[in-house]
Amino acid sequence: MNTQQIADRLVELCRAGNFEQAYDELFAEDAENIEMPTTAEGPLGNAKGLDAIRRKGAAWEEGIEEMHGGSVGEPIVAGNWFALPMSMDVTFKGRGRMAMDELCVYQVRDGRIVREQFFYDT
């Protein structure tokens, strides 16, 4: 798949809530996940390798009390990179309800996502 096809497939899978399937189909084993500098440490911080990214995803889901809504915008593709706007309205266990907007940037190499980086207000 080329970058546009990968971007379109990721949008399709995210909109359906099929995150594990996205990892299986689209991510490289050595993929890297990067958060904002203020949240880079800990179980929800940066992750290197698909297994670590999966663990981080599981920890994220464990912290959610209720998902009220969210959206995934259309991808913008430039060469081996693409960006997606995402939003969510979620109640976290012990932290209350929060609306979040972020820009997610992905790098593709050899038909797989090798890097994802999230930009959002902290």
Rank of each mutant, 00 (worst) to 15 (best):
W81N: 02
L26W: 05
R55M: 03
I76F: 11
V90Y: 04
E62W: 04
G111L: 13
W60C: 07
W60Q: 10
E116F: 11
A78Y: 09
D8K: 09
G70W: 00
G79Y: 03
G17R: 09
T39C: 14
R112L: 05
F118Q: 05
R95Q: 12
V108K: 03
E65K: 01
N33W: 07
K48P: 07
L13W: 08
D24R: 14
Q117W: 05
G45A: 08
Y23V: 13
C14Q: 14
D110S: 15
T91N: 02
R15W: 09
F19E: 03
H68K: 12
Q21S: 11
E25Y: 11
P37N: 10
A58Y: 05
E61W: 06
F92Y: 13
V11K: 03
R15S: 07
G70P: 00
G45S: 10
E62N: 15
G57R: 04
E32K: 10
P75S: 12
A99P: 10
N80I: 00
M100V: 15
T3Y: 02
A52W: 08
V90D: 07
Q5N: 14
M98W: 12
M88P: 04
L44Q: 07
D101W: 08
G45L: 01
N33M: 12
L26T: 01
E102A: 10
G111F: 08
T122A: 15
N46L: 06
G96S: 03
L26I: 00
A83C: 09
C14V: 12
M67I: 10
L10I: 04
G70I: 06
A28S: 15
D51A: 12
V11Y: 01
D51K: 09
F119K: 02
A47V: 06
E41W: 05
K48T: 15
A83P: 05
Y106K: 00
K93Y: 01
M1N: 11
C14P: 05
E116R: 08
E61G: 06
W81E: 00
E20Q: 14
E116T: 14
S71I: 03
C14I: 11
Y106V: 06
A31R: 08
L10D: 04
S71K: 12
Y23S: 09
M86V: 04
E25S: 04
L50A: 11
A31D: 02
A52T: 02
G45I: 06
L44H: 07
M36T: 12
D101F: 07
Q21F: 04
R54P: 02
G79N: 09
G49V: 01
M98L: 13
G73Y: 07
E35P: 04
E29A: 12
Q21I: 10
M67F: 15
R95H: 12
M36V: 15
